[in-house]
Design a binder for these strands. Structure first.
Lengths: 237, 237
DNA sequence: TCAAATCCGTAACTATAGTTACAAAAAGCA
DNA sequence: TGCTTTTTGTAACTATAGTTACGGATTTGA
């Protein structure tokens, strides 16, 4: 293990849900008994391939990775984008799944730390306090994960494109706190995210503009009629 | 607490993931320190309403409940059907959410046991072994939940009704290990589950029958051409 | 700075799914 | 058993979204 890795992990751990509420000492003790490994990847490298044998949970130490799933037709569905301190493989770890359920791809040059699943689950020999906390943190992470999935499910359960756009924009509005904001996705990505065809998305957005609900140009959006948007999100009108 | 309840819970606990791998003694000790409550409901009763204050995890002791979500337009999306020994509210418990994220409805007369969230999370005063095991079981349950949601997300990301039906039937086929099996949902429920209109579901199922992929009558289904189904699930043909 | 690549809106056409209504079959029940 | 309720398939019609193609705007990068 190179020293720069240790340092990087220590500093990442501060922002990592998995190691939350631990003192530096606890963390050090924990890290020694977790028996982790570190690997680095270049942009677009495949970090883990769906179906490959699952070894353990991954923590993004540096850079950005994407969790994707591909069907046989070759369509790629982006499930999640993860940054520093975020986890992947946590669902597989506790269900005894032996294969990666999704593919992990490096969105940029990145460094990943792997923790063997059995080290997480098993009681460590020093039975450190930090290990207990680790488990509780894990519970929180998994729960949050489930809630996020739940919310995404709500998106896809909306049947009309207009409803999905409206819900999405309302969430952005809430997030930014302003009626004018920039989208972080281009039309293609947004269409993928909302699981609709790109031209259909454009068409519907223009209709909504024509009706005076919103205004937009490229990635900048302005909400003109919040109430109308709310109604649209609920499938009315 | 009525004795019949205690007995019912003890017997349910045997089949309950939350209490897995515990001896009768451990279970008894655990139950005393969990401070649970028991309530009974009649068919179609609302057990917990989305938005109502969240008290604790629910365990189905007897009967069947449905986890649903409704939008203002009144459309009802069935997220899950739970039987004896299954849990609800486990996601809310560990994320500090104070409101029920979904509505729970009694599918039949049923009995439910509630365990306060803080009793699960906090160390019990007797720090019993069973409590540790409870937490580990909880990890497994949450992971599995997340995987299930993931799978449902995959369902809804399929754009065609035919693809959804095919995926659903393939999963049932895999689950039963036989090409002939009974569905546990009627057409209405299945349509809800797949998030499509009921007549559209019927129509598509009939088309698939006409094309020789499947055979069915009411809730009994026979898969006639697995490969064709696989192709359909992937959006081909 | 200019050419290439990408992004975005648009339109015509097609395909798919939703809506509504109804009747036959099955199940529940008095 | 016979009546009622529920479940299911079906059909005609409508609405919505996907497909394909194209051109202008914008960005990228040599």
């Amino acid at each position: 293990m190179e020293p720069k890795h240790i340092e990087m992990i220590q500093s990442t751990a501060k922002d990592c849900m998995l190691f939350r509420d631990m003192s530096v000492e606890e963390l050090s003790a924990l890290l020694t008994c977790l028996d982790f490994r570190v690997r680095s990847f270049g942009r677009n490298d495949i970090i883990n391939m769906a179906g490959d044998p699952f070894e353990g949970i991954g923590v993004v130490v540096d850079g950005q990775v994407a969790v994707v799933k591909e069907n046989v037709a070759g369509e790629r569905l982006v499930f999640d984008i993860l940054g520093r301190g975020e986890l992947f493989g946590e669902m597989a770890a506790f269900t005894g799944v032996r294969k990666w359920p999704a593919t992990i791809i490096a969105n940029s040059d990145c460094t990943v730390m792997y923790v063997p699943a059995d080290k997480l689950v098993g009681q460590c020999s020093n039975s450190c306090i930090a290990h207990t906390r680790l488990i509780m943190n894990m519970l929180g992470i998994l729960s949050r994960k489930a809630l996020t999935l739940n919310r995404q499910l709500e998106y896809l359960s909306i049947k009309s494109i207009r409803g999905r756009i409206a819900s999405f924009l309302l969430e952005q509005y809430k997030k930014h706190g302003k009626t004018t904001f920039m989208l972080t996705m281009n039309r293609n990505e947004l269409a993928d995210f909302l699981n609709v065809a790109r031209p259909s998305l454009s068409r519907e957005m223009c209709r909504m503009r024509d009706e005076g609900m919103i205004d937009f140009h490229r990635s900048s959006v302005r909400i003109r009629d919040v109430e109308a948007l709310r109604a649209a999100a609920q499938g009315l009108n």
